Deep mutational scan, measured.
Amino acid sequence: VTLFVALYDYEARTEDDLSFHKGSKFQILNSSEGDWWEARSLTTGETGYIPSNYVAPV
């Protein structure tokens, strides 16, 4: 499992996005959609889309 960590805070703009804070960790579920990845937050357990340029591999 590849884990990613948030580099910045992000406020969701749609109900499909995940809001998160810098330092939040994610499991990436689908990275084939270009700049928006489907991810599960390891902090909240919620699933949604995150901007790929806001995260980096742990």
Score class of each variant (00 low, 15 high):
Gly23Lys: 02
Tyr49Asp: 02
Gly45Cys: 08
Asp17His: 15
Trp37Leu: 08
Asn30Asp: 12
Asp9Gly: 06
Pro51Ser: 04
Val1His: 13
Ala39Gln: 00
Leu29Phe: 07
Thr44Gln: 03
Val55Met: 09
Leu29Tyr: 06
His21Glu: 12
Gly45Leu: 06
Ser31Glu: 09
Ile28Asn: 01
Tyr49Phe: 13
Phe26His: 00
Trp36Arg: 14
Asp9Gln: 04
Val58Phe: 12
Val1Lys: 12
Pro57Phe: 06
Ala39Tyr: 02
Ser31Arg: 13
Tyr8Asn: 06
Ser32Cys: 13
Leu7Thr: 04
Gly45Ser: 05
Asn30Ala: 08
Gly23Asp: 05
Gly34Thr: 13
Gly34Cys: 12
Leu42Thr: 07
Ser41Leu: 14
Asn53Glu: 10
Phe4Ser: 02
Ser52Cys: 12
Glu46Leu: 11
Leu7Ser: 02
Glu38Asp: 05
Tyr8Val: 06
Ser31Leu: 10
Thr2Val: 13
Gln27Tyr: 14
Arg40Leu: 13
Pro57Ala: 10
Glu46Gln: 12
Thr44Ser: 09
Leu18Met: 13
Trp36Glu: 03
Glu15Thr: 13
Tyr8Thr: 06
Ser19Thr: 09
Ile50Lys: 01
Ala39Trp: 02
Thr44Val: 02
Phe4Ala: 07
Trp36Phe: 10
Lys25Ala: 08
Leu42Ser: 04
Thr2Gly: 11
Ser31Ile: 12
Gly23His: 05
Glu46Ala: 10
Ile28Tyr: 02
Lys22Glu: 06
Phe20Met: 05
Tyr8Pro: 00
Ala12Trp: 02
Asn30Leu: 06
Gln27Val: 15
Asp17Asn: 10
Phe20Ala: 01
Phe20Val: 01
Ser52His: 07
Ser32Asn: 11
Thr43Pro: 05
Gly34Glu: 12
Glu11Phe: 10
Asp16Arg: 15
Ser24His: 15
Ser24Gln: 15
Glu46Pro: 01
Glu11Ser: 10
Trp37Val: 06
Ser31Asn: 12
Ser19Trp: 03
Ser19Pro: 05
Tyr8Ile: 06
Gly23Leu: 03
Glu38Ala: 08
Lys25Glu: 09
Ser52Ile: 06
Tyr10Ile: 01
Ser41Asn: 15
Glu38Trp: 15
Ala56Lys: 10
Asp35Leu: 12
Gly23Ser: 03
Glu15Pro: 13
Asp35Pro: 10
Ser41Lys: 12
Gly48Ser: 02
Thr47Gly: 03
Asp9Phe: 04
Trp36Cys: 08
Gln27Lys: 08
Phe20Pro: 00
Tyr49Leu: 14
Ser41Ile: 10
Glu46Phe: 08
Glu11Ile: 13
Gly34Ala: 14
Leu29Ile: 11
Gly45Trp: 06
Tyr10Gln: 01
Thr43Tyr: 09
Tyr8Asp: 06
Ala39Leu: 02
Leu42Pro: 04
Gly48Val: 03
Glu15Asn: 12
His21Cys: 14
Asn53Lys: 13
Asp16Lys: 15
Thr2Asn: 11
Asn30Arg: 08
Ala39His: 00
Val55Ser: 01
Gly45Ile: 02
His21Arg: 14
Pro57Asp: 05
Gly45Met: 07
Gly23Arg: 02
Val1Thr: 13
Gln27Asp: 07
Leu7Gln: 04
Gln27Ala: 09
Asn53Arg: 12
Phe20Arg: 01
Glu38Cys: 15
Glu11Gln: 13
Thr44Asn: 07
His21Thr: 15
Asn30His: 08
Glu46Asn: 08
Val58Cys: 13
Asn53Phe: 10
Thr2Leu: 13
Ser24Ile: 06
Ser32Val: 10
Asn30Ser: 10
Leu18Cys: 04
Thr47Leu: 08
Leu29Pro: 04
Val1Ile: 13
Thr2Lys: 12
Tyr54Pro: 00
Lys25Trp: 14
Ser31Val: 11
Ile28Cys: 04
Val58Gly: 05
Glu38Asn: 08
Lys22Leu: 05
Ala12Asn: 05
Leu42Gly: 02
Tyr54Cys: 09
Pro51Tyr: 06
Leu18Asp: 00
Ala12Tyr: 02
Leu7Tyr: 03
Lys25Met: 15
Asp16Met: 14
Leu7Pro: 00
Gly34Pro: 15
Pro57Ile: 08
Gly48Glu: 01
Tyr49Arg: 14
Asp9His: 06
Glu38Tyr: 15
Val55Pro: 00
Glu33Thr: 12
Ser19Asn: 06
Ser31Phe: 15
Ala12Ser: 11
Thr44Ala: 03
Ser52Lys: 14
Thr44Tyr: 03
Trp37Gln: 03
Glu15Ser: 13
Phe20Lys: 00
Glu46Trp: 06
Val55Glu: 01
Thr47Cys: 10
Arg40Trp: 09
Asp9Arg: 04
Leu18Pro: 00
Glu38Lys: 13
Asn30Pro: 04
Glu11Leu: 10
Asp17Val: 15
Glu15Asp: 12
Ser52Gly: 07
Gly45Glu: 05
Val55Gln: 00
Tyr49Ser: 06
Ser19Met: 03
Ala12Thr: 04
Arg13Tyr: 07
Glu38Gly: 04
Ser19Val: 02
Val5Lys: 04
His21Lys: 15
Asp35Phe: 14
Ser52Arg: 13
Asn30Gln: 08
Ser32Leu: 11
